[in-house]
Simulated scan of single mutants.
Amino acid sequence: MSRLGPVITLTAGAALAVGLGVASITATPAANTTVAATSNEPPATETAAAAEPSAEPAATAATITPEPTETAEAAPKTIDKADYGGYVRGNGGLIAISTRDGKTIGYFCDGKSEAWFKGNEKDGKITLRGFGAAAVGGTLGGGKATGWLKIGGKKWTFAANTVVKPSGLYRATAQVRGAKLRAGWIVLKRPQGGFTQVGAAFVDEKQLQIPQLNAYQPTAPVPLDDDTTLYPKDVDGFIQEMQ
């Protein structure tokens, strides 16, 4: 019995050692697998990439949003407010053109004859019509109005710069002995100082001697004769009446 004791002890020790070795071998792969899953970054990236498709609809919606703006920009534009005045080439008369939100009027006068025009402006282009075949066409922009003018079978060209008050177009109407009077003026400031002024007044088809406006206060009342006083208006005061 005393001899078998060490052998049994050694055998038990050997068996224990073998068991610990197997346990160590078995546990090692599990530890390595855990470390690989923790430190391996690509799977996290793949997970994020897999989530990205859910953000694509938002990006698509953002791309579509500007389309209404592009459509609005393509719509015809109009000039909010502008006034022009200048000479008619080869005629000696003056022309004035004023536009407000696309609504546009014009007036020509050389002191002997006159013509009123009305129409519209879109994208800087104007087409205005007057009595009979009278017409004006041209372009507004860059601080200038340029184009052509037709009256009584004759055609001229013009170039008119932008103007500010008191330069510009003025108009007055009144009743004279039961008849309607209309009067129009163009006032232009001269580069060398002072003002150039031309106008005409008619009662029905009869032309009257028109009074001069106060160039520095063109809307001040002016007497036509002993019985009639005219009250000129600037463009903002009568452009709606002309449309």
Results as ranks from 00 to 15, higher is better:
125 K>Y: 05
21 G>N: 00
236 D>C: 00
30 A>I: 08
24 S>V: 06
34 T>N: 01
52 E>L: 15
135 A>K: 12
28 T>H: 10
207 Q>N: 02
203 V>I: 11
155 K>V: 11
209 Q>C: 02
20 L>P: 00
149 L>E: 02
141 G>Y: 10
236 D>A: 00
81 K>T: 11
24 S>W: 01
42 P>G: 03
153 G>Y: 07
128 L>A: 13
94 L>P: 02
62 A>S: 07
66 P>H: 00
66 P>E: 02
89 R>W: 12
35 V>G: 01
161 N>F: 06
127 T>N: 15
243 Q>R: 14
53 P>L: 12
123 D>M: 11
162 T>I: 07
177 R>I: 08
182 R>S: 15
229 T>L: 00
205 E>P: 01
58 A>Y: 03
125 K>N: 09
77 K>I: 10
234 D>A: 03
56 E>A: 11
235 V>Q: 00
65 T>R: 00
224 L>I: 06
116 W>H: 15
92 G>Q: 06
15 A>Q: 01
22 V>C: 02
237 G>L: 03
119 G>N: 12
32 N>I: 14
47 T>L: 12
205 E>F: 06
180 K>Y: 14
114 E>P: 08
178 G>W: 07
239 I>D: 11
102 G>E: 02
122 K>H: 09
115 A>W: 02
148 W>G: 05
48 A>E: 12
200 A>T: 13
137 G>S: 12
137 G>A: 09
154 K>F: 06
129 R>P: 09
2 S>E: 06
92 G>T: 12
115 A>Q: 14
84 Y>R: 03
243 Q>I: 13
199 G>I: 09
202 F>T: 13
234 D>M: 01
157 T>Q: 07
19 G>V: 02
153 G>Q: 05
25 I>P: 00
73 E>T: 10
234 D>W: 08
16 L>W: 07
165 K>P: 10
191 P>A: 03
201 A>H: 08
206 K>P: 04
113 S>T: 15
185 W>K: 02
71 T>F: 05
51 A>E: 14
127 T>F: 13
190 R>A: 04
182 R>Y: 15
42 P>T: 13
37 A>D: 08
185 W>A: 08
140 L>M: 05
183 A>T: 04
32 N>A: 07
196 T>G: 00
46 E>A: 13
221 P>E: 04
176 V>E: 10
55 A>P: 08
220 A>Q: 11
210 I>M: 05
155 K>A: 13
80 D>C: 04
183 A>G: 14
194 G>W: 02
119 G>F: 06
94 L>I: 07
230 L>P: 01
126 I>C: 04
136 V>C: 10
222 V>A: 04
235 V>W: 03
226 D>M: 00
242 M>R: 08
17 A>R: 04
156 W>S: 10
222 V>F: 06
96 A>Y: 12
136 V>S: 08
133 A>D: 14
18 V>K: 00
3 R>F: 10
167 S>L: 04
125 K>T: 15
15 A>L: 05
182 R>K: 09
133 A>I: 08
74 A>G: 04
198 V>C: 01
63 T>I: 04
